[in-house]
Design a protein around this nucleic acid. Sequence first.
DNA 1: ACCTGAACACCGTTCAAGT
DNA 2: ACCTGAACACCGTTCAAGT
Lengths: 210, 210
Amino acid sequence: MNGSLSPEQVVSAARRLITAGGLDAFSMRKLAAVLDVNPMTIYLRFESKDVLLQAVAQASLTGLRLPPPSGSWIDQVVDLAAAIKDHLVADRAMLRVHSDPARLSAGVLGAVDRGLGLMAEVGYEGAHAVESFRQLFWSAVGAALVDGTFDSLPGSRSDLTDALAAVDDHPHIHDHATHFGPVDANRLFRSTARSLAVGLAAAAPMEIPS
Amino acid sequence: MNGSLSPEQVVSAARRLITAGGLDAFSMRKLAAVLDVNPMTIYLRFESKDVLLQAVAQASLTGLRLPPPSGSWIDQVVDLAAAIKDHLVADRAMLRVHSDPARLSAGVLGAVDRGLGLMAEVGYEGAHAVESFRQLFWSAVGAALVDGTFDSLPGSRSDLTDALAAVDDHPHIHDHATHFGPVDANRLFRSTARSLAVGLAAAAPMEIPS
DNA sequence: ACCTGAACACCGTTCAAGT
DNA sequence: ACCTGAACACCGTTCAAGT
């Protein structure tokens, strides 16, 4: 190893390691082993594990691709939110890391621009357009963070088994017990985004374009 | 120390430690020091750090209190979502831990029951009621996870400074640049929940009750 | 200038030994 | 039966020393 270790090499090796083994199992020493380098050599490129992980998180945001616009206004809103969420989910292992990715990737900027455009189409202007798009954007981020947590909070069968024990206090749960199947994260997010889009459209100054 | 260390003591000390110092700084050895006990004694109560953290996460879900129902149907839906989210945010440091809290607290069950009831009020039945409530519930969980990440993804001023550099490709961002102030997480979530509620109401079989 | 080995102050957890 | 001390196999990071 002599001047041959670029920061990009470090980031991409770290990304591979995290995607393969998760964030918890990631360590500077393992990364050094994979790079066939002394652990301390990495510290010549990145001042700490934290700084390296931020670079990794930023790299993971760069590849967002938007689907071509098609369908009704509501369809387009839902598609956009889903694209954001899906991209974030793909790099979910790194999401927690985001404490300061000040610079945004071109992909994310494209999504922001598309979203603002959609809001403008139904008459949202200025701060209202920003506000409306933010609802969509942060819902997508939340869904991405939540993805994988599904089945560990209300909704899975095992939860309801317990709930039925407390059924005296919870008549509605009792009535709907048979309908609590497993959660399809993707389907659920799309229907949520659709409801959100309908709500945004209803409050918009203009009619929904056809 | 002789038979005097209850699992409850361990959980509540762990909770205090995590709330005060965050999950990253939490360790079994520090917990043992706070409890004035040998680190290994904790392992007689909980088989691993992971298992202990799950018990902590579950304990943190127990205290959810619902606000008294008031206002329009939409107001109530928004209030419910906000209550869930606020409670989760309060214990946000522990949220990541949830890999298997199979048993739900009474507080969460109450929220599920209230939500299903609200959906029934506008005519959602069976699986549709469950589906509609899930949109609300998981939005709240997502918002809770996201809370604190605000200002690190699109929306903060520093982001837009960068975005303006790429302005040729992003006309909508350019037009709205001055409206990207800091994000008020709480206000944003409430307006998101409101849009969601409007969307759910619009698709409901019945009229919104007054 | 660039890299490294040894060392420091931590981890979670195992296990043989103590009372 | 209940607890513990020493030990193992790890961490991130510092820093003096090597080339």
